[in-house]
Amino acid sequence: MKKYFILTFLIASTVFGASAQLLPSIQLGVKGGLNFSTLRSEDGGWLDASTRTGYQAGIWARIGGAGVHFQPELYITGKSSEAKLVDRDEEGKVTFTSLDLPLLLGTRVGLGLAGLRIHAGPVVSFVVDKNIGQSLQQVTQFSEYKNQAWAVTGGLGVDISNFRADLRYEHGLSELSKNDSAPQKVNLWTIGIGYRLF
């Protein structure tokens, strides 16, 4: 009888342990960082823009077990660029404040509390505020911007205990300008530091 009890206990422990490993883990955390953005015309022919520093702050989640994980994020992001028209003597600062929603797939290499991550995926941005320098406001190409934009991002991350660090490049896919003859896209690098709450 004792042998059957021990055998039943071992089988049950093995089954529950395997089931727990198969279930996806869920993490939630906060993150902040800097971005370095550039607003350029698609052909580079009429708009030249210098890279400027912006900010990023928000939350992230990670869902998945060993191997592949899904990482949705939500940030308030400030993007800025110093724009100069190539064929005119007009220049000024252009800024966007947006809610950014990256939907990333990634994988983690490492054991225990430390690991290296690789991740990539689409980003949708909802522009909540835009400001065009006064000298550029009269220029047709800058008169109207869309309220939504798509991009793709990818990069590397490091996990050390509850801390997270990321380096990413984001490439704009959709045109920001409503003027089809003056396409503009935002490209940026981001450096972020995060903390896992649970």
Rank of each mutant, 00 (worst) to 15 (best):
K130A: 13
S174L: 13
G192S: 11
A114H: 01
L10F: 06
E82R: 06
T53Q: 02
S80T: 15
R164E: 02
G121C: 11
T190G: 05
L74C: 09
D159M: 05
Q134D: 14
L101M: 14
L34Q: 02
D129I: 13
G157M: 00
S161T: 15
K2N: 15
T95E: 12
K2C: 12
Q71V: 02
P122I: 02
H69Y: 10
Y169W: 12
V186Y: 07
I11W: 02
F198G: 03
A149T: 10
R108E: 11
G17D: 07
V123D: 03
L176H: 05
A12N: 06
Q141I: 10
S143N: 13
D87A: 11
V109G: 04
G33C: 00
V68D: 04
A151Y: 03
L167C: 02
D100A: 08
G65V: 02
R62P: 01
S13W: 00
L173S: 05
Q21F: 14
G44P: 06
G78T: 02
I132L: 14
T38C: 01
W150R: 09
T14E: 06
E90R: 05
R52T: 04
Q137T: 05
Q27A: 15
L156G: 05
Q27V: 03
G64P: 05
T38V: 07
Q71P: 04
L10M: 07
T95M: 11
H119S: 10
V127W: 06
A57T: 07
L101T: 12
A149V: 11
Y195H: 03
R117T: 13
R196C: 11
K31M: 08
Q27Y: 14
E90K: 05
L47K: 04
V94S: 10
V128D: 03
G29V: 00
L156V: 13
S181V: 09
D43H: 04
R88C: 08
G110D: 01
A83E: 08
A20F: 01
F96D: 01
T8Y: 12
P183K: 10
R88Y: 10
G78V: 04
S143D: 12
Y4E: 15
D89H: 05
T14W: 06
G67S: 02
I191W: 07
A18I: 14
Y169R: 09
F36W: 03
Q148R: 07
I59F: 08
L23D: 06
S81M: 02
P122N: 05
S174A: 06
M1S: 15
F36R: 05
H171M: 15
N147I: 02
R108T: 05
S50W: 04
Q141F: 10
R168F: 08
G172A: 09
E144T: 12
L105V: 11
L105A: 07
L188M: 15
L173M: 08
G133I: 07
G172Q: 04
P72G: 12
E90M: 06
Q137E: 09
K2I: 12
S98C: 08
S13Q: 00
G155E: 07
L176F: 11
W46G: 09
V128L: 07
V30D: 00
G157Y: 00
K31F: 01
